[in-house]
Computed example of a mutant assay.
Amino acid sequence: MRPDPLEIQERWLPALRELGARGTSTPVLELAFAAWALPYERPVPALLREVGGAADLADDDALTTAVAERLPALRAGHIDI
């Protein structure tokens, strides 16, 4: 079952913000967001903007790159953390 955008807004985005502000890596959240984004044919920043309230994260190049870099492995059936 895929998380709905509201769950992402309420749980994932605040955690990404808080951990990012601390300089803490977020590989599990990056992987989770990449898995959620996998069926969509859009750039990661666009998906973050669509989730709502995530324009700041959409502009975070380190985060969007980390998520985007996980997509090819997921498409190939690999899960690496």
Rank of each mutant, 00 (worst) to 15 (best):
R22T: 06
L47Y: 13
G52V: 07
D80S: 10
Q9L: 03
G20L: 01
M1H: 11
L29F: 13
L57T: 03
E7W: 04
P39F: 09
P43I: 02
P5T: 13
E10M: 04
F33G: 07
T65K: 10
V51L: 12
V67M: 03
G53R: 05
L71M: 14
L47P: 10
R70E: 01
I8Y: 12
W12I: 00
P43G: 11
Y40Q: 14
L74F: 11
R2A: 14
D4A: 06
V67Y: 12
L57D: 04
A37D: 13
P45M: 14
P27D: 11
A15P: 00
A34W: 01
A34H: 01
R70G: 01
L38P: 00
R42F: 13
R22M: 13
R70F: 12
R2S: 10
D60Y: 06
Q9F: 00
V51E: 00
I79C: 06
D59K: 10
A62T: 13
I79A: 08
G52F: 02
W12R: 03
A37K: 02
L31E: 06
A68E: 15
R2I: 14
T64L: 07
L74G: 02
P72C: 06
A66M: 08
L31Q: 08
V44D: 08
Q9G: 03
A55Q: 15
G52N: 09
P3E: 00
A62P: 03
G52P: 02
E18P: 07
A32H: 04
A21D: 15
R70Y: 06
R49I: 05
P43V: 05
P39C: 04
A34D: 04
A66I: 01
Y40P: 00
P5R: 13
T65E: 13
A66Q: 04
P27H: 07
L29M: 11
A32T: 12
A35Q: 13
E7R: 05
E41V: 02
L57E: 01
Y40S: 06
F33Y: 15
P45C: 12
H78I: 01
L74H: 11
A15L: 12
R11P: 00
L48I: 08
V67P: 03
G23I: 03
E10H: 07
R11M: 01
D4T: 02
A73V: 09
A21Y: 02
A62V: 05
R70W: 11
E18A: 15
R22F: 10
R49V: 12
